[in-house]
Computed example of a mutant assay.
Amino acid sequence: MRRLLILRPEPAAGRTADKAARRGFDVLRHPLFAPLPLDWSAPPADGFDALLLTSANAVRLAGPGLADYRALPTYAVGAATAAALHEGGFAEVICGEGDASAIAARIAADGHRAVLHLAGTTVAPMEAGPLRLTRIAVYTMACLPSDPALLRDATPGAILLIHSPRAGERLAECIPLDGRSALHIVAISQAALAACGSGWASLSAPHKPVDDDMLALALSLCE
Rank of each mutant, 00 (worst) to 15 (best):
residue 137 A to F: 05
residue 162 I to Q: 06
residue 111 G to E: 04
residue 131 L to S: 02
residue 223 E to S: 14
residue 37 P to D: 13
residue 7 L to I: 09
residue 8 R to L: 03
residue 20 A to G: 12
residue 57 N to H: 15
residue 216 A to Y: 06
residue 37 P to C: 13
residue 164 S to A: 15
residue 176 P to Q: 06
residue 2 R to Q: 00
residue 48 F to K: 11
residue 166 R to L: 14
residue 120 G to M: 07
residue 139 Y to W: 11
residue 144 L to Q: 14
residue 37 P to I: 14
residue 18 D to Y: 14
residue 117 H to L: 12
residue 211 D to S: 00
residue 161 L to D: 10
residue 141 M to P: 03
residue 181 S to D: 13
residue 64 P to I: 09
residue 163 H to L: 07
residue 68 D to G: 09
residue 168 G to K: 08
residue 179 G to K: 15
residue 55 S to M: 14
residue 119 A to H: 12
residue 89 G to A: 01
residue 146 S to I: 13
residue 28 L to N: 02
residue 63 G to L: 03
residue 63 G to T: 01
residue 131 L to C: 06
residue 4 L to G: 04
residue 197 G to W: 01
residue 12 A to W: 00
residue 40 W to V: 09
residue 154 A to T: 11
residue 14 G to Y: 07
residue 48 F to H: 09
residue 52 L to W: 07
residue 68 D to K: 14
residue 152 R to P: 05
residue 149 A to E: 13
residue 192 A to W: 14
residue 208 K to M: 00
residue 124 A to T: 08
residue 85 L to H: 00
residue 98 G to M: 11
residue 103 I to W: 09
residue 188 I to P: 04
residue 21 A to F: 10
residue 113 R to S: 12
residue 166 R to A: 09
residue 77 V to N: 04
residue 204 S to V: 03
residue 170 R to D: 04
residue 147 D to P: 12
residue 41 S to I: 15
residue 187 A to C: 11
residue 12 A to G: 13
residue 152 R to A: 11
residue 62 A to N: 01
residue 108 A to N: 07
residue 90 F to E: 05
residue 5 L to I: 11
residue 90 F to L: 04
residue 114 A to G: 12
residue 7 L to T: 15
residue 106 R to H: 11
residue 195 A to D: 03
residue 100 A to K: 04
residue 84 A to F: 10
residue 6 I to E: 10
residue 115 V to R: 05
residue 119 A to T: 13
residue 98 G to N: 04
residue 15 R to G: 13
residue 33 F to D: 06
residue 101 S to N: 08
residue 5 L to M: 03
residue 23 R to V: 10
residue 55 S to L: 12
residue 94 I to M: 15
residue 158 A to P: 09
residue 208 K to I: 00
residue 210 V to L: 02
residue 42 A to P: 05
residue 110 D to G: 10
residue 149 A to W: 10
residue 131 L to H: 06
residue 42 A to L: 12
residue 50 A to F: 02
residue 208 K to W: 00
residue 40 W to G: 07
residue 24 G to F: 03
residue 199 G to C: 09
residue 7 L to A: 07
residue 194 A to T: 14
residue 191 A to D: 13
residue 153 D to W: 08
residue 73 P to S: 03
residue 20 A to K: 08
residue 178 D to Q: 07
residue 108 A to S: 12
residue 222 C to R: 04
residue 66 L to Q: 05
residue 162 I to N: 08
residue 82 A to P: 09
residue 57 N to F: 15
residue 2 R to M: 03
residue 209 P to Y: 00
residue 192 A to E: 01
residue 77 V to M: 04
residue 20 A to F: 10
residue 115 V to Y: 13
residue 79 A to H: 15
residue 166 R to T: 13
residue 138 V to K: 06
residue 217 L to K: 06
residue 77 V to S: 06
residue 35 P to L: 15
residue 5 L to V: 08
residue 108 A to G: 05
residue 154 A to G: 06
residue 148 P to G: 08
residue 143 C to V: 15
residue 76 A to E: 07
residue 222 C to H: 02
residue 108 A to H: 05
residue 187 A to L: 11
residue 221 L to Q: 08
residue 158 A to H: 02
residue 210 V to D: 07
residue 194 A to M: 10
residue 83 A to Q: 12
residue 73 P to H: 04
residue 211 D to K: 00
residue 146 S to M: 13
residue 102 A to N: 12
residue 174 C to V: 13
residue 70 R to I: 03
residue 39 D to P: 06
residue 13 A to H: 11
residue 136 I to M: 01
